[in-house]
Design a protein around this nucleic acid. Structure first.
Lengths: 223, 223
DNA sequence: CTTGACACAGAACGTATGTTCGTGTATTAT
DNA sequence: ATAATACACGAACATACGTTCTGTGTCAAG
């Protein structure tokens, strides 16, 4: 009996999977049964089929019977999420929030691609949007003019979450860590050397979304 | 003569391309010549081959002759670049730079995936690395504790580029926009409210890399 | 010692598959 | 009018290809 590795895979299972991945990545199409055999040192097409059947049963590949090269890696979905840039965010303007029922299609809209692996788990499922920062007003959030802020829709927040807040009385937008404390809210800047804003619970405060990520593409500075 | 569309593509060319894209996306492997014929209303395998030859000549597909389903969309490379996180960057420590000949393989190393579409053009070709920010010392660069800085190797810089600099005399690392001016260097903070550092050309200054991008994954703040 | 499970192998087979050839029509250039 | 080119097609062909069948060897359990 061959030595089993993780998940009940033998070395031959693993080499077949690795070869399949390599073929899809390098040549753009899956290998045939005979090509798998040659690459993995299996001299018989029936043994390759024997292993492919097991990999199918383990859910690691999918096959469409009888057709050539009809192998599929089931979880090879798109690696990036395209997040629409729905507008800008600036200190003195209300925050733009996408309408609930609107979807953004194609390339007409500005968008930013974000690798799914660097998004927090649950955000992968939710409808993210992005805002581009305009002006120097977000410095206390350590966010620069031109940065892209990835948001998820929210009208409420838990303590410690960073949110986009519109303060109507002050006509001000801000990005802050949000805390409920006694009779007021504390809006804590990301810059630890700066002081928080204390907002009385009498004062209107609108949470427009939660900040998930900030992306800064470094461009050359002018003199 | 059939009506030509953009780039000299006839309707049949376009339908073949669309079908190829659809097959790769939906079933995970390319179609055969006969499948293309059925899907596009072309009854003869030699006509399909005639069109595939033209699409190849236009650079829109690639074929590996004689093998089944050996069609490839040439620009369908991986959508993300995996950038290794080679260490941390902190104010009082020299900057870690990956050795020239070393490559990072597999999952042993921390890494961050970056969508290729948000990288500047030439960085896609070069060997990027990432450093994780430790401490509050990069605030003047608008960079927070925990941020990930995507770098490209460099020992020289042009005016206006953001670089990672190690000042040996001061035992200090800093991220600044770099300017050569007369008898000194000006290291300009990203935070426009902060003053630059002026470094005499007599003082040692080591450029360790150029900053390409900053990624901040927002986590919950503690009280 | 026997049996069954597992792993492996080669051969045979029918179908899938891509290429080549010959033919036809329409349009454009000479 | 003729030739060249583009577009279209069916048939034939050889090879690629996946499945099935039969067989062997090893090992563990009974």
């Amino acid at each position: 009996m061959m030595v089993r590795t993780r998940k009940g895979l033998t070395e031959r299972h693993q080499r077949i999977l690795d070869y399949l991945n390599e073929c899809v990545r390098e040549q753009g199409y899956p290998p045939s049964i005979r090509e798998i055999g040659k690459a993995t040192g299996i001299s018989s097409t029936s043994v390759v089929t024997y292993y492919l059947k097991q990999l199918t049963e383990m859910g690691l590949i999918e096959r469409d019977a009888k057709y050539s090269r009809a192998l599929r890696l089931p979880n090879a979905g798109p690696e990036v999420t395209r997040v629409p840039i729905v507008g800008v965010i600036a200190a003195g303007e209300p925050i733009l929030v996408p309408d609930a029922g609107v979807t953004y299609i194609g390339d007409e809209m500005d968008a930013v691609d974000v690798a799914r692996s660097i998004l927090p788990g649950r955000e992968k499922e939710e409808r993210l949007y992005a805002l581009k920062v305009k002006g120097d007003s977000m410095i206390d959030a350590m966010i620069n003019d031109g940065d892209i802020v990835i948001m998820k829709p929210a009208v409420q927040a838990n303590n410690g979450e960073m949110v986009a807040i519109w303060l109507p009385d002050r006509e001000e937008t801000t990005l802050k860590y949000f805390f409920k404390e006694g009779e007021h809210y504390r809006l804590q800047p990301a810059n630890p050397t700066m002081k928080p804003i204390i907002i009385s619970k009498d004062e209107p405060l609108e949470i427009k979304g939660k900040v998930v990520m900030v992306i800064r593409q470094i461009e050359r500075a002018s003199l």
